[in-house]
Design a protein around this nucleic acid. Sequence first.
DNA 1: TTCTTAACTTAACAATGTTAATTTAACGTC
DNA 2: GACGTTAAATTAACATTGTTAAGTTAAGAA
Lengths: 210, 210
Amino acid sequence: MPPKIKSDSDRKLIRSRILDAARDLFVEKGVQAVTMREIAKRIGYSPTAIYLHFKDKESLLQELCNTDFLALADNLSSILEIKDPIRKMVELGKSYAHFALSHPNHYRLLFMTSRPVQEYCNASDLQHTPNHDAYTLLKQVVDDVFVIGAFASQLTDPELIAQTIWAGIHGVCSLEIVLGKDSWIEWRTIDDRITLMQSALLNGLLKETL
Amino acid sequence: MPPKIKSDSDRKLIRSRILDAARDLFVEKGVQAVTMREIAKRIGYSPTAIYLHFKDKESLLQELCNTDFLALADNLSSILEIKDPIRKMVELGKSYAHFALSHPNHYRLLFMTSRPVQEYCNASDLQHTPNHDAYTLLKQVVDDVFVIGAFASQLTDPELIAQTIWAGIHGVCSLEIVLGKDSWIEWRTIDDRITLMQSALLNGLLKETL
DNA sequence: TTCTTAACTTAACAATGTTAATTTAACGTC
DNA sequence: GACGTTAAATTAACATTGTTAAGTTAAGAA
């Protein structure tokens, strides 16, 4: 029994409810548990009603992805208050890892799952702002370290440095998420692994300071 | 029209054909393209015949995983001929990355996808031999560097070192596989990223050699 | 009042993993 | 050599899922 002519804000609210239901499902049980029918059941609609708000399941996940990507960046941006550039970089890594490990399904969806190539044409001006883009945030933090001349002199490309640091932390976190429960490897504690990764990379990238 | 009483070797051969068909499918089109029906079509059987050889799809993928894991380790073990421990470690990393990037779907299945916890009870003696276990191979190579006293003196746990090096290379490769095609990031070449990761980690983990 | 249309539901389809029932023919045994 | 047993395979069928098409309902416009 459909009441009619929903306002724009009403439609937005329904979109949110769909997204929230979808998020709940995969945060709890992973992406394979996210079915259109279960989402629909949770919000009290029929399964096909979702298609009035999202083109298909892929689009829904895509939007979830983007939304939470921005939320992550926003969360991380609190470290911008830290003055010392190097400590700021270290804390960014720790925060990033903390997010990854406390939201493994999120992290999987964001950084461990191939999706059809994203088109960032809309709202492109918002894309590369530190507050809204985790990578750009990292890049800026690395730049700060770069301008004070703390990196070894042969390292002339902050972008490459940023990508390497990201890869290091990502490697530790993603291995933990995928294989952390496997017993054929005698895992050291995740804290030890993160710490060593950070200190080794810093040690290897920064100028010798003696 | 079933001919009957297949010998053990016949059954093994059929298993192989199933595994090969499955491998072909996902090497070419990724794991989502691996369907029981398509496998069956390729080997000229009905879909349900596969269940005479594998408990379910998960088991099939599991076995594929294990088989190719051993093949990888075998492939990598050729670097054992290298004498210099440090160069050996570097070459292992390069070979590993080369495998990952030239077999992205394999790599995804092996190291980027959570599977139900493996039980390595059977043939457990084969599990931790360098020739058959990529991680153990890395561990041994790291040990070799460790015993010549090349790591910084405060690093006393070769296992932790190995896990960190693995995570570094894995991070570069897995990011490339998942996000390498995304344009919102100005990726440096994959070679540059691998090289910097290796030199930074080495630099950060080894003793200062001046 | 009647027509249009937004909002939604029900029905239905195709693809997929999987199980149950059925068929076929090779083998051992009397 | 006939015959039952059983391995090997197939066909039929079911449940789940994403998705489309057709139908339904009621709010607003004419």
